[in-house]
Amino acid sequence: MTEVVFEIEGVKKVITFLNRKAPYGTIYALEVLESVLITAAFEQHANIVFVDDGVYQIKKGQDTAALEMKNFLPTYGIIEMEKEDADEDEDMDMNWRIIVEKESMEARGLTADDFKIDVEVLSSAELAEVLETSDAVIGG
């Protein structure tokens, strides 16, 4: 067993979370949330992006009671709060963006009003730029 120590003092990266899977049918949506939240502890920049069926993750009105599965819609509210706190705190160098791809949203008959949290709706071309400028991309 080797425990590696990284030199991360003062390192600031842009980490993009590319959410492409619907919630509940698989666990991907839930576990990626956990990795988004830990990013805040390290004050890293983050793009939380919803593409393809990933847009269903933040759809309003989720009720999982009959499934006995954890409804994790409220967790997205925590992410939104983290973002807002970082935006308001001038001493904090942490820029988070919550992004939905317009094409994916429209293909599924959704509008920004269908989402539980405030999002930036970007075109494919605009989102391509965001991906291009990311230091690390975590897909799911």
Binding site: T16, L18, R20, L131, E132, S134, D135, A136, V137, G139, G140
Partner: peptide, 8 residues
Amino acid sequence: NDGVTPWL
């Protein structure tokens, strides 16, 4: 390349 984007 500057980074890797996985399409899974």
